[in-house]
Design a protein around this nucleic acid. Structure first.
Lengths: 335, 335
DNA sequence: TTGTACGCGTTATCAA
DNA sequence: TTGATAACGCGTACAA
């Protein structure tokens, strides 16, 4: 059970009676090796159980064939039953699969975690880095870009770093949702906003604000952090502060779900007394009571696009610096 | 924006007017360097923006300070709103955080993905590998173990590989749940079982079987794959096949949730007409209608324990080959 | 088509 | 305390 001394190219070469270079060629699929020799090498590889040392390989090739997806969040948040991160991951995984590259997922919730990720990525352990869910003005994307490491962010970076990014049309989507509420006769429209250190939080609030202000309606705002817990608290506060509200736009489906329950507890009927609209269109949205009307963002597509951009960047191609994907209002029964 | 030639130890050494070895010592926090020299080196590092090349380092140290968590599942599955994988990941992340090691998450849903993970892990890109959710007789854990790479599985590996594993008491938990149903007067108890190529699926079914058989009750079984979709289908089939059933044990909370809805659609009241019990105790379980009675498994703790075991293994310690964590029946309103 | 020889950027050993 | 120097395991011009 002790670590069997692992064989190197050298030993395989000796066993096969050829040179290191030839073994290397066979292992890497070069066609310029005579068939019988290939055969001998392959047998030696199998007999010795040879596996290339990736560190040594990437030291000389300067590539690792892997790409990091960095989520500057605690695992708790990333894997709430929010489907946003998962969707992103799926999209990235699909594209990387096609490119035969390894996806390396890194969470960086704590400062120490952030440091570790910094070391790992700046240390050239990966060929490129995808960022999602950036908080505040994280300097890491800009820093990596300056180090010449390909980087793509989801969401416009809040520090003004010149890093390519992809985002969805938060403002347009929320404006459409809010207008829909207004068109349906709602006049006291509240919002449970997202965290204001993230682009998604900021812009979704802006979409709400712009629309109610333009319609001459009052602003009624409470803040959450996209989680259910925060949604519950915010909804209760809204009910206390504005007992006559007749609609709520929540900046995430999880918060909308919590709002649904809080409203139910408070004896309000949805959508009769209060209309509710969420944002994301996570899987659970179709299962809430009543099913949730929400703004769908093409999250998987976002993950795919980010990844394609990154791969292009890594290939030295010129790429668009900013891409914005459309959102869509999905009407169910809560509004 | 072109990849600035990244500085090496050599260049830092030249800039600081010392040798490579000294720079290496400072970078790695050796105390045997005179203070003024340390200062000079640090300045040179900062000026040049030096970052150690991890490939070169691990080539000589034989360590990478990172650990892989392999999930042989498609991203779709891993990140359903099932909280099981996330919990595992959180547990692992916590422990690795404490050990200052990097968690590298790898999904391996497709055969190609599995190959990639094989290459990555056997290539010594990580210091150890955690496996979760193994399907069938995956040979990879055993293979890694034979290569001398520390490995720990969650759930007993189905091939008889001598790999340390941690699992939860599926059988005991399900038996308790089933007995609870019997004690409450249920006599026509059905089950939505999990996939039979996974330990969790097999053992949860065994727990149900043993208990109903021991009580002289009939077995009523449909199979799902832990997802909601499969739960919906299975529940409908059960209703068609056994219209008089009065209880259902579902092998996952997602399937239980789907069953709740399917029963509702079929006009059955829960728990009056049909009692429902799930397995997992995911966050959503407290939010279903009615809130779900379920078997809680200490999933975060499982992730932590796995990781501690792995780290001990990597330190060359002797470890237990099998650990089983207890499960607990959480009674809410669905049964 | 095959082999020789060098270099990738570190760490570690050993002298000084 | 510091500095040469030898690995670490591999890929690849270049030569044969």
């Amino acid at each position: 059970m002790t670590a069997a001394q692992r064989p190197t190219l050298e030993e395989v070469a000796r066993q096969a009676g050829v040179s290191r270079a030839t073994v290397s060629r066979v292992v890497n699929g070069s066609t310029t090796v005579a068939e019988p020799i290939q055969e001998a090498v392959r047998r030696a590889v199998a007999e010795l159980g040879y596996v290339p040392n990736l560190a040594a390989r990437s030291l000389v090739t300067q590539r690792t064939d892997s790409v990091a997806l960095v989520l500057p969040e605690a695992a708790t948040r990333v894997f709430s039953d929010d489907q946003v991160f998962p969707g992103l991951i799926r999209g990235a995984a699909q594209e990387l699969e096609a490119a035969d590259k390894q996806l390396v997922l890194m969470l960086a919730g704590s400062p120490a975690g952030h440091d570790r990720v910094t070391r790992y990525t700046t240390g050239r352990h990966v060929d490129g880095v995808l960022f999602a869910s950036l908080h505040g003005e994280d300097p890491l994307p800009g820093r990596l870009a300056r180090l010449g490491i390909p980087v793509v962010c989801s969401g416009r970076p809040l520090d003004a770093a010149d890093v390519p990014y992809i985002d969805v049309d938060h403002i347009g989507g929320v404006a459409r949702a809010t207008r829909y509420l207004i068109d349906n006769g709602r006049r006291r429209i509240a919002t449970i906003a997202g965290p204001q250190d993230m682009v998604a939080g900021i812009e979704r609030l802006a979409g709400y604000r712009d629309t109610v202000v333009a319609a001459g309606l009052p602003q009624m705002i409470e803040y959450g952090d996209f989680t259910r817990e925060s949604g519950t608290i915010a909804m209760r506060r809204l009910l206390a502060a504005y007992p006559d509200l007749d609609a709520v736009f929540a900046a995430s489906d999880l918060m909308a779900h919590a709002a649904l329950r809080a409203l139910h507890e408070a004896g309000r009927r949805v959508p009769e007394d209060v209309a509710v609209i969420g944002f994301d269109d996570i899987e659970t949205a179709a299962y809430t009571e009543p099913p949730l009307t929400t703004v769908r963002q093409p999250i998987v597509e976002l993950g795919r696009k980010m990844t394609r951009l990154l791969l292009a960047l890594a290939d030295g191609a010129e790429v668009e610096r900013a891409v914005v994907l459309p959102t869509e209002l999905v009407i169910r029964q809560s509004a």
